[in-house]
Amino acid sequence: METTPAPVPRPSRRTALGAAAASIGALALAACGGSSDAASGASDGGSGDYGSLDLNLSWIKNAEFAGEYLAVDRGYFEKAGFSSVNLIAGGPSGTSTETMVLSGSALIGTSSPLGVAPLIKDDEAPLKIIGTTYQKNPFTIISLGDATPITTPADLAGKRIGVQAGVNETLFEGFLAANGIEASALEIVPVQYDPQPLVNGEVDGFFGYLTNEAITLELDGKDVVNLPLADNGLPFMAESLVVTQESIETKREELKAVLVALIRGWSDAVEDPEEGARLAVEDFGKDLGLDMEKETRQAKAQVDLVSTDETDANGLLTMSQDLMQKNVDALVTAGFDLTLEDYFDTSLLEEVYEENPDLR
């Protein structure tokens, strides 16, 4: 099993809602996210002089951000008008994207609809999602085929499921609600992010990531069975691009330049996942002791989450009306009764693709 870095856990580390909520009062009206006070540049989205870009990642610098690495490595951000790029790692010791963007410490960052929903609903935080890398989330309930396989939501009845506190717990509760399952029908066991309790038989299922813990367990020779949330009633997008409403209004061209660079980077990551994994292991995450085989598997596995029939038609990072509505419906199930317009703004990507037809 992968032991270095520490087991790479998932969803709840994405948002650190407690920290974000604690600081939201001071941050809600803070200056918009942004890394440069440079002029907004020309309307073509690529000829501005924007200075340095601060981009907050939702997790450690593993293969999950292959598109960002390729965009930096191949000079796409520089061509878009940025003098340098600071990819800010998230993770156990990192700060949530919501907090970073609201405070102005980052112009843009990656999170998820469920990450921004509590802050938008409860604190009226001026956040918007302007695009998404993962069209389909990788959240899953992992079980072992040679122990107690869980292949359908109905199989959860009577089982012990390891779930991390925070956003993961909220996601799991939404998953149960979406499938008409009462929480009393099973036992929710508090766990951390290492799937060892599943291996030890302390739980029958473990809340994790298809592209992370599931792969780590497979590489350790375990008979892994997945129950993907996205295929069973909870179709959240993930690695969504979060900004402030103010930056949409005042740094529009700068944001569009970021999107152009990211689209080019993720296009390369889809075509060459091995290179994205290599950059994670040997360059951007070289201090983490990442395993090349695991990172390559992750980079390849996430291609199907990033590139879909809808992105083939509309372009990478885009969010279709149907996808956004499914996310809103899932958020309502999770207790966040807001409208599509409260969460999403697709206008920047629409302009980007209209002004840069070569990106398709």
Rank of each mutant, 00 (worst) to 15 (best):
N212I: 01
E213G: 15
E213F: 14
A214P: 05
A214D: 06
A214Q: 02
I215E: 06
E218M: 10
G221T: 08
K222E: 13
V224M: 06
V224W: 01
V224D: 05
V224P: 02
L227I: 13
L229R: 12
L229V: 13
A230C: 12
A230R: 15
A230L: 12
D231C: 11
N232G: 15
N232W: 13
L234I: 14
M237F: 03
M237H: 03
A238L: 13
S240L: 07
L241I: 10
L241A: 06
V242R: 07
V243G: 08
T244I: 07
Q245E: 15
I248K: 10
E249H: 06
K251T: 12
R252F: 08
E254D: 08
L255D: 06
L259R: 03
V260L: 15
A261K: 02
L262Q: 03
I263N: 00
I263C: 08
R264C: 10
R264L: 12
R264I: 07
G265R: 03
G265S: 09
G265I: 04
W266Q: 14
D268F: 06
A269C: 02
A269S: 04
V270W: 06
V270R: 01
E271V: 07
D272Q: 03
D272C: 04
P273H: 01
E275C: 04
R278W: 08
A280C: 06
E282P: 04
G285H: 02
K286C: 00
K286S: 02
K286F: 02
K286M: 00
D287H: 03
G289H: 04
L290V: 15
D291S: 15
M292W: 13
M292P: 14
M292C: 10
E293V: 08
E293G: 12
K294R: 07
T296W: 11
R297C: 00
Q298Y: 00
Q298A: 00
A299E: 01
A299L: 01
K300G: 11
V303Q: 04
V303M: 09
D304T: 12
D304Q: 13
D304M: 11
T308N: 04
